[in-house]
Structures are given as structure tokens and as C-alpha cells.
Nucleic acid binder design. Structure first.
Lengths: 188, 188
DNA sequence: CTCAAAAGTGGCACAGCCTGCCACTTGGCG
DNA sequence: CGCCAAGTGGCAGGCTGTGCCACTTTTGAG
């Protein structure tokens, strides 16, 4: 992670974390749109101006969480034999916060929009990582499709998961990926 | 379409179209973020306040175009034998405007975010339309995956299309869908 | 230890998006 | 013609996000 040697750095991580917690709580309490940056900043005991020094936008607080998960996925890709397994391994991280964020996403379209956009960027990074040096156009297309389809399945699986009480996310993801893999008969 | 009997209705369509044209031109000229609603309204010779009576947000101007295309897709689904063919048939509509919008999307992340969100909503509509009455959970999941994966392939295809000079969009889409259909080896 | 540089913070002003409200104009219709 | 509904413009105001500057605190070099 980031180096936490000095006092300065420690304080920074502290307020950053305070902002994330405050935002998460407020978003859950009154909805993403209704919660204002002013309130979040007040709850974290900083000025609104400072909020925007930590995050570029109101959604940034949650995107940060998203990015952490993606970083773990990138690591998992190195050790797991397939992308699908890397995805499943990553999901088995901190259920708690993951579920909270996903439930917020289900209720806030504006938030969902930003996340989807970020996901597209992550797809590109993932494709770059999975692609060998000097790939053929065929390989590029195949890899892009693989990643995009995997993310699509992930999205569908999360949707099922959230609407099925007492179920495990990883199971839904596994099922969706398996179904995807055995063919969808798109053109038939 | 909408009834265009009276003078009132005709005027409305006129200013609406003027707003779309003005917005498209301004977005292309100075970028989505740089172009202000005030400028768009001025170019269409209405007040900024009126702009928001036609569209709920600045992006709304382009979402309207997106929605028209989706309406055509819904129609195509009724006649085409598969979703894939319906998609391809729809794309063969007005290339001109379609390409302009897609090129704007490639340069404006904020715009892309809104579009992606809208696409998710469209996916849901499509799933509802494709699903039989009283579907099994398996059918629901399969259909959701089919639609999500198809849209994912469409997105990848459009990306390839935009970066390949002098190519036809439909060909990229056909290729991507075919590749998707012959299997991605997701879990292998 | 001292002190200057660097980093972080707060306040202020400001542009832009978007909404509610009210007055005004204009088209539809008996 | 005259009424009603629809459409429009202007204004006030809240919220997001950014640039700028002054102030405080931490860091690190001498």
C-alpha cells in the first residue's frame, strides 16, 4: 500500500477513511442524491473544500472502494489460472463493504452510471494485462470480448444475488460464468 | 410517431429538433463539458429554462437519440429470428447520426457514463420482452446473460469500428457476435 | 535546535447544472 | 370572440466542483 511513515501520511489516511465511512453511512441513510458533500465533510470534520482534495467528485468516495477491489482482481489474475477464477477469488474478500456498495448502486442510478464508466476503464486495463506482446487482431478482439462478457456476467450475477435473500455472491457468479461458457446461442 | 396535427405540436418538434442539432454541433465543436446549456439554448433560440423542459439534463439531448435507436431495436426483435440479427438490422439505420454520437461518446467520459446507465435499463426492457410468461429461474438467468453479453459484444464491436477507418459497423458487430457465440472459454 | 520549504487546510468567489415558482404569451376550441 | 390549457421566460436558489490565497503544521536540512 502507501507508505505510512510520517505523521502527515497517517493523518491523511485517517481523514480519508473518515470521509469514506461518513459518506457510506449518509448515502445509506438518506440516499446518494439527498446526501450533500457539505454533510459528509461535516461528519468527517473537514471543510467541503477539503473533501474535493481527496476525491474528485461526490461519487469518488465509492469509486475508491471499487478501485481497491479492482487492484485485488489484478493481483488475483497473476495467480489464478483463469479470469473467471480470479474474479471469484476477488469477490471472497470483504463481503461487508462490497454488499453495502452494491446495494447503494441498486438504488442510485447516477452512482451506477459512474461505476459503469469506471468499469469500462478497468476492462481496458485488464485486456492490456491479459494480452501478450504483439497480439494479433484476432487475439485482441477475443480478449476484449472475454473481458466484456465476463464483466457482463458478473453484473447479471450481482443483480440475482441482491434479489435473492441469504445467498452467496460467489455462487451466483460461478453459475453465471458457467452458463456463459457453455454457450448462449446468440446467433441461433 | 407522435401526432403532428396542430401548429402547437409542430412547433414543439421544431424546437426539439433545433435543440438536438445545436447540442450535437456544439458538443462536437468544443466538447461535451465545455459546451454549456446556455449556449445550446441560445443556438436554438430558446431560454435555458426551456431546454430543461425538453430534456431532463444536458446529456438528455443525446439520450433521446439513443432511445430512438432502441425503439427501432424493439421493433426489429419482433421480426428478426434472433436478437443478434435484430441488432444488426437496427444498426443499418441512420449511420450518420449514429457515428456522430458514438464518436462523442468516445471522447466524453461523463456522457459515456450516462449512456451506459441507460443501456442497463434498456437491457431490462429487452429481457422482459424476450422472456415468456411464467419463466423458470433458469430461463431468466439465461436471457439476462444473453442480452448482457450481446450488448457487451456490441460495445466491443463499436470500439473496434471507431478505431478502424473506412469500415462498416455492422461487419464488426457481426464478427463480434459470431465470436461470442462460438464460445469464449471463460472458465478454461 | 532552528528555520525555511513543502504539504495540507479553510474560506471565498464563481461558473455551471438543475428546479420551483410565477407571470406572460399563444394556440386550440366551443 | 373569449376561455382554457399548453408552452415559455425570468428569477431565485441549492448543489457540485474549481481556482485562488492566506494560514497552519509537518518535514527535513543545516
Amino acid at each position: 500500500m502507501t507508505k505510512l511513515c510520517g505523521l502527515r501520511e497517517r493523518k491523511k489516511q485517517q481523514t480519508r477513511s473518515a470521509l469514506v465511512d461518513a459518506a457510506l453511512a449518509l448515502f445509506e441513510a438518506k440516499g446518494f442524491e439527498a446526501a450533500t458533500v457539505e454533510e459528509i465533510a461535516a461528519a468527517a470534520d473537514v471543510s467541503p473544500r477539503t473533501f474535493f482534495r481527496y476525491f474528485t467528485a461526490k461519487e469518488g468516495v465509492l469509486l475508491a472502494v471499487h478501485d481497491e477491489e479492482f487492484a485485488r482482481l489484478l493481483d488475483a489474475v497473476d495467480t489464478a489460472p483463469t479470469l473467471a477464477e480470479a474474479v471469484i477469488a476477488t469477490i471472497d474478500g470483504d463481503h461487508e463493504r462490497f454488499r453495502r456498495v452494491q446495494e447503494l448502486l441498486a438504488r442510485a442510478p447516477a452512482l451506477r452510471a459512474t461505476f459503469l464508466e469506471r468499469t469500462v476503464e478497468q476492462e481496458h486495463q485488464l485486456v492490456d494485462k491479459l494480452l501478450p506482446a504483439d497480439p494479433t487482431p484476432q487475439q485482441v478482439l477475443r480478449t476484449r470480448l472475454l473481458v466484456a462478457a465476463t464483466y457482463a456476467a458478473l453484473r447479471v450475477a450481482i443483480e440475482s444475488w441482491l434479489t435473492t435473500p441469504d445467498s452467496h455472491c460467489a455462487e451466483h457468479v460461478t453459475e453465471a460464468l458457467a452458463l456463459l461458457d457453455q454457450g448462449l446461442a446468440v446467433t441461433r
